[in-house]
Amino acid sequence: MTIADLGDGDNFRVKRVSLPKEIGKRLVDMGFTGGAEGYVVRSALLGDPLQIKIRGYDISIRKSEAAGIEVAHIGHRYRRRRGMRMFRKGTDE
C-alpha cells in the first residue's frame, strides 16, 4: 500500500520509499523515513497533488510521488467521520 491509495484523513506509518534516486533521497531528507508517521490532510481539486502532514509539518507531493512511498495504513484521523468509511474503497492494510 502506498500513500496514493489513502484518502483524506488517513493515518499512515512509512515502510519505505521506493523512487528513483534523486527524488527518493529528497523525500527521505524531508522526513519520509521508515517508521515516520503522518496523515493525508487533503488533495487538491482534481485529486492531485496531495497535502501530507509528516513530522509535524505540511508538505505537498504529487500523486506520482505518493505512489512510491510504501506505508501501513494505521487508522483514520477524524473520528466523527468514521461512519462514512464504510463507503470507502479498500480495506486497511
Binding site: R26, L27, M30, S60, I61, R62
Partner: peptide, 12 residues
C-alpha cells in the same frame, strides 16, 4: 527527462 518533482513544503 522527467518532470521536476513537486515536493514542496507548505509553510505555516
Amino acid at each position: 527527462g522527467e518532470a521536476t518533482p513537486f515536493v514542496m513544503e507548505l509553510p505555516p
